[in-house]
């Protein structure tokens, strides 16, 4: 049923969008502000973006964030895909319910607790805190998102395709790489992008598990904002926003296209 778009709908939509996105819009707008004062519009300028290029601390933090995000999301994708396979493929194994619950627990676990627990673990293992510990921590909390996406894709997977490959002489191990993986690739890729964005903007868990010399971009933004808002922060936040939006958009496009293709395939079969 199609309802006509009326004034009431228009107002509620506008209010909803404003409530969600006005603060972000303000941040973006003021990143192009000529004035040094954050709340006074002094005309359009790109000077704060230019200044970023000379801010060693910011560039360094951005580089750390990027390295952590790429490494942790890649590891999380491998582990998350394997966990998703185990959950989707083996309907019964000892401790399955426990495993399923534990894989998805980080989705609802308070970040402070995850962060604290990880910190205690790293201290207990006498791991030097820094790049490695942040990366491991990010793998821990992003893996479940990959598992969810992969598991959902495998739920609608026709297993006779894999059986056909084995019937034609392909070993189970090789079947995974030439048949299963190509078919779930869109889900794996969107899982990676999701893990990447979550890692890129994480503050709480990073703060708990960081060490000297490993300051991520959100951590730097937060500490600088406490000292007074600098328009450079607006600019770098806008850039971060752009990267994350692009990643999420790409993940959505991948999923939608894969879904559409699957519908076409089922319609044809």
């Amino acid at each position: 049923m199609l309802t006509r778009f009326n004034a009431f709908n228009a107002v509620s939509l506008a209010l909803g969008i404003a409530f969600l996105h006005l603060p972000i819009a303000l941040l973006v707008v003021f990143s192009f502000n000529e004035s040094k004062l954050v709340t006074v519009w002094g005309g359009f300028s790109l000077k704060w973006y230019g200044a970023l290029l000379h801010n060693e601390a910011l560039l360094g933090a951005a580089w750390v964030s990027l390295k952590v995000a790429v490494t942790s999301s890649t590891l999380a994708t491998v582990l998350g895909t394997l966990a998703g396979l185990a959950l989707a493929r083996y309907p019964r194994f000892a401790g399955r319910a426990l495993f399923a619950g534990m894989v998805s627990a980080p989705l609802v676990m308070p970040e402070v607790i995850t962060g604290l627990a990880l910190l205690l673990t790293f201290v207990g293992l006498s791991l030097d805190r820094g790049f490695t510990t942040i990366t491991l921590a990010h793998v821990t909390f992003t893996m479940c998102f990959v598992t969810m996406v992969v598991k959902a894709r495998l739920a609608g997977f026709d297993r006779s395709v894999e059986e056909a490959a084995m019937d034609l002489g392909c070993s189970p191990f090789k079947t995974f790489f030439v048949i299963t993986l190509p078919l779930i690739a869109p889900a794996v890729a969107s899982g990676w992008l999701l893990a990447f964005t979550l890692s890129l903007d994480d503050l709480v868990i990073s703060s708990f598990t960081t060490g000297p010399g490993a300051t991520t971009l959100p951590m730097l933004i937060y500490s600088q904002a406490r000292l007074g808002v600098n328009p450079q922060i607006n600019a770098v936040s806008t850039l971060l926003l752009g990267v994350i939006s692009a990643a999420v958009l790409l993940a959505t496009v991948l999923e939608t296209r894969a879904n559409r293709r699957r519908e076409r395939e089922t319609a044809a079969a």
Partner: peptide, 9 residues
């Protein structure tokens, strides 16, 4: 196979 199980890719 009954479902044909062709490799879609």
């Amino acid at each position: 196979f009954q479902s044909y199980a062709l490799f879609p890719h």
